[in-house]
Write a protein that binds this DNA or RNA. Sequence first.
DNA 1: GCAATGAGCGTC
DNA 2: ACGCTCATTGCT
Length: 694
Amino acid sequence: MPPAGNGTAGNGAPGKRSRARSGGRARDNAPAQWRPVARVAVDIPLAHLDRPFDYLVPERASAGAVPGCRVRVRFAGQLADGFVLDRADRSDHPGRLSYLERVVSPEPALTPEIAGLARAVADRYAGTLADVLRLAVPPRHAGTEAKPSPPAAAGPDVPAAGSWARYPAGETFLAALAAGRGARAAWSALPGPEWPAEIAVAAAATAAAGRGTVIVVPDVKDLARVDAALTAQLGPGQHVCLTADLGPAERYRRWLSVRRGSVRISAGTRAAMFAPVRDLGLVVLWDDGDDLLAERRAPYPHAREVLALRAHRQGAAALIGGFARTTEVTQLVAAGWARPLAGDRGAVRAAAPRVRPAADAAELARDGAALSARLPSLALRTARTALAHGPVLVQVPRRGYLAAIACGRCRTQARCAVCAGQLEIAGSRQIPQCRWCGAVAADWSCPRCGFTEFRAIVTGAARTAEELGRAFPSTPVRFSGGQHVIAEVPDDPAVVVATPGAEPVAAGGYAAALLLDGWALLGRPSLRAGEETLRKWLNAAALVRPAESVIVHADAGLPAVQALIRWDPAGFAERELDEREQLAFPPAVRMAAVSGPAAAVEELLGACGLPAAAEVLGPIPDTEAGPEPGSEASDAAPAMLIEDVSSLPVRALIRVPRAEGTALAKALQSAQATRSPRKDHGSARVQLDPAELI
DNA sequence: GCAATGAGCGTC
DNA sequence: ACGCTCATTGCT
């Protein structure tokens, strides 16, 4: 029971000093009659200041200082932005409280759900609340805020199942949504163009239960399809699309209409994972393996993790997946958090294309040269036949994935002696190999100048497009990738060359697809190479009409190729997760990366009370962080050398069993907090569940 | 004896 | 981070 009167807020009875400092007349600064203390999340990016601070609310600002509103406060003498988290009768702070400098606006921009979520995300990723709030709440736009948002429309009727009927558990899942139950699905979408409509039906079923939906997709191309499907399912005005490329006013207008509850369905790219949808009933994440879903700003939260956290905290349903299946979602299934939602074999057979490999390890080993004549012709013959009745998709790895080679002297591009395809250095081998037929060119010499040394050049999709143009002179060749992404192509015959993720949708499906240079994708030195390659293949192959041909240019014996042929993404992911368990790699374990100058990394690791089971790998020199200094250090003075070494960028990995993940994050978070006031050795960056490990 | 310069701590 | 505090030092 707090004592009555204005002096109840800690020792915060306003002294003459604070009255004078706040600038107003003394009368203006009487503390509010009702709950005179505001708990404020101040926008200070320092780990050791990551907690609420109490301020006195002036009586005149009391009505506006609602929980969630933006305020300006004086902090350490400086003006800082903040959000009011709460109003309270009194403070535990033993010192004198300052007044709020200003209530920026009474709009409760930070909802209780998002405030709690942001705290949980910060804790999960060993980051600060301020960093997460900057990702979660868009900048204010005063003019937009002044305008009212339109009233909410009534919820729609329970929708028909539509193409969800193809999934044995589809109707059950929709019924759970319509009943407001928090069903959580690991979705293996059937190949084809139906997935946006399926998301729209799920959102409509959730809306029928009077609850809202957050939908996150990797890029604007996917978002356009979901947008169209939502409009088709629910009519206009029932949803908004949130993307980074809207102007500040439009972005804030749409975001406000979600926050104010006048729109119940929010679809968007990564940042929309924090959309403050009212009465959250469903979170949807499409293609959760796409690396665009990992936030690039501290504390680097991943949309899958944030949405799963939201669903969990709100008792909402979840629909997470795509054509591919990630090991992370497989982990959620293994943990019993989500249930698989997939078509049965018959439905898969009816929807999937026919996948054939264009290379076979045994054949390659037996006679590379003989095979070489057949291989390009299989791909080209398939394309030629298919072009008679529609467009053909050609997927080519992005520029930079392939290191093609040219003569070291005259720069003539090196070509295969057998089939004249481009030679490249694939994977870690230093022997040039043909991109088309795989023949090894051990004794290469330049056909123009006879030089026997070669140099690497970068090649990619644009060059392939040129070459295909020559192979099909009467057919239009279109290119999608990089800065020129095409969303959709018509049903007319065309060769459509695209980089992974930039494949246009064909209006009536592709007549065939060629997945080129598979070994370049599979040979990448990454833990995820197999999983990631299969995901890219499945996403391209899913655009092909049922039962039409997909030619994959990789060794048929590889598990990823087999999984594509059998259209079994979940089986592949399960085996992959088993392997990660054997090797103690994520997501079977939790990992954190600590990087920065060697001394800072050492100090952080030393200050960190790691869980007993934690295993520190490294630190090792961090190649990502920048070029190594010159190697002529032998002349340098010893003292200089030591200085250099301690400031060299390094990276350490910390591995713990999954059950210790929370303890790991907590340990790193508090180590940052004790270290952050001093920065004598520079600062170390902490990243939990880093996207790239190797 | 105390003013100028610097590490350390708290920030409501 | 920033500013305020106290300590140390150097000089009147």
